[in-house]
Simulated scan of single mutants.
Amino acid sequence: MTGPPDDDLTVIRVDQFFPHPPAKVWRALTEPELLVQWQMQGAEAFRLEVGHRYTLTSVPRPHANFSGSVEVEVLAFEPQRMLRLRWTDMNPANSAQWTITWKVEQEGRGSRLFLVHEGFDPDDPAQLMARTIMDGGWRTHVMRRLGHMMERM
């Protein structure tokens, strides 16, 4: 992962190199039987189809006003290159709605994976807490699990 933390409080940006070809990284991002190995519970319901919706569940974080469940909608994709999703917190009292964009680019014999997680409200203390938690989670836990899963593929 390169670069300093992002100063824009509305977005998280992660940039990670993997020693795997783009086709393998794309499979890890879009095949349900692989998603369940590194993503939140519910990933097995993913379908690479614009408009498809499913639910992911994780640990609730009350101090960040996160219910632990998000409805996910596939917004757009370009095969082998880009996947864009909308995440909406399932708690009706929480207006959190984020856009998650994955981009895969070939780099040498491997791939550079870019994640942009946007839509945080910098005027909402709970959203700032959620951004802090998710930023750390994406950079460490998620990228590490994704990398380990691809090593086993």
Rank of each mutant, 00 (worst) to 15 (best):
Q37E: 13
V59H: 15
N91E: 12
T2F: 12
Q37K: 15
L35Y: 03
T57Q: 15
I12P: 07
R13F: 03
S69F: 08
W98Y: 14
H63M: 13
R152G: 08
I133R: 05
V59F: 13
R61W: 12
A126L: 07
W38H: 05
E107W: 02
L48Q: 04
T88H: 10
E105Q: 07
T55I: 14
L115G: 02
M143R: 00
G108M: 01
H148I: 10
W98D: 02
I100N: 07
H52M: 01
T140G: 14
Q39I: 10
M82E: 10
R61L: 11
T55V: 14
R84V: 10
T10A: 10
A28G: 04
E73Q: 15
Q16H: 11
Q106T: 06
R131P: 04
V116D: 10
F46I: 03
A76V: 04
W102S: 04
Q97T: 14
S69C: 13
L9K: 14
P21V: 00
E107G: 05
T88M: 09
G108F: 02
R47W: 06
T132I: 09
Y54H: 12
R13A: 09
T101K: 00
T140C: 06
G136M: 03
G42T: 06
S58E: 13
T101R: 02
R13E: 11
R27C: 03
L146G: 01
S95A: 14
S67G: 09
M90T: 15
P4Y: 01
F17G: 10
V142I: 14
V14E: 10
F120G: 09
D15V: 10
A43H: 00
L56S: 05
Q41E: 12
P122V: 09
P4E: 15
E107Y: 02
V25E: 03
T55D: 15
N65C: 08
H141S: 13
E44C: 08
A76N: 09
L29G: 05
R145N: 11
A64G: 09
R47K: 13
I100K: 00
H117C: 02
A23T: 01
A64C: 05
